[in-house]
Simulated assay, not measured.
Amino acid sequence: MMKLVSLISVASVLLVGLTLQPTLVRAEEPVAAAVAATTDVEATMKKIGFNFKQAMQATEVPVMQEKVLVMAELVASVQAYQFTPEKQVVFQQGLDKVAAQLTLVLGALAKQDLATAKQLLGEVDSLKKQYHKERSPSFWQLIFGG
């Protein structure tokens, strides 16, 4: 079920991106059906963070759009990664929320609304903070479990 949700969110991000940037795909180039799973989640997350900062600093819609599309592709590659069984559901939930938020950002960019797009992209930072807490257990969680 989670893989289906991931594939649907990836497809929606890619479809919005292709609609916004028709020059990204030429007629002779096949569109990839699925994104390959990352082999290094930490490095991929750093790339997402780098593109996030660049997108937030963008002063033009096409520049921000390019960075958000890169982020969406990177998020999709992390969604395809198999986390440990006890963290899989939680991490996929967070990644699905990020993918959905990026779709909203791309929608605002399609309307040439840079301010709204940046506001919506700011929510990704809140999601990052929320789900990174899940990744690293606190001192008390290590002692008492949970």
Rank of each mutant, 00 (worst) to 15 (best):
V78W: 03
Q130I: 08
L7A: 14
V124N: 00
L18I: 06
K133V: 09
I48W: 01
L142H: 15
V13P: 02
F91V: 12
A72C: 11
T84W: 09
T116W: 02
P22R: 07
G107E: 02
V35Q: 13
I143W: 11
K129Y: 07
A99I: 05
V25E: 07
P62Q: 11
L95M: 03
L120K: 02
K53H: 08
Q79F: 03
S6V: 03
V5W: 03
G17H: 01
A76F: 02
Q88H: 08
Q119G: 04
G17R: 04
N51Y: 11
W140V: 14
D40C: 04
E66A: 15
G107V: 08
V10L: 08
D40I: 04
A100W: 00
L106Q: 15
T19D: 09
G146S: 05
R26A: 12
R135Q: 10
M71R: 00
V105A: 00
A117S: 01
T59V: 13
T116D: 09
A115Q: 06
Q119Y: 08
A32G: 05
K111N: 12
F144G: 05
K118S: 09
M64W: 13
A33E: 05
L20V: 07
A37N: 03
G17D: 14
V13Q: 11
F83P: 01
Q141D: 10
A100R: 04
M64H: 11
Q57P: 01
A27Q: 14
M45L: 14
Q57T: 04
V78F: 04
P137V: 12
A55I: 06
F139L: 13
V61L: 03
Y131M: 05
I48Y: 01
E86G: 03
V75W: 00
K87Q: 13
K87W: 05
D113G: 13
A76R: 01
L121K: 02
A33Y: 02
L20P: 07
A110P: 09
A99N: 02
F139H: 13
L104P: 01
S77Q: 08
K53R: 14
V13C: 15
Q130S: 11
V61T: 03
Q65A: 11
P22M: 01
V89L: 12
E86L: 06
A58Q: 11
G94W: 00
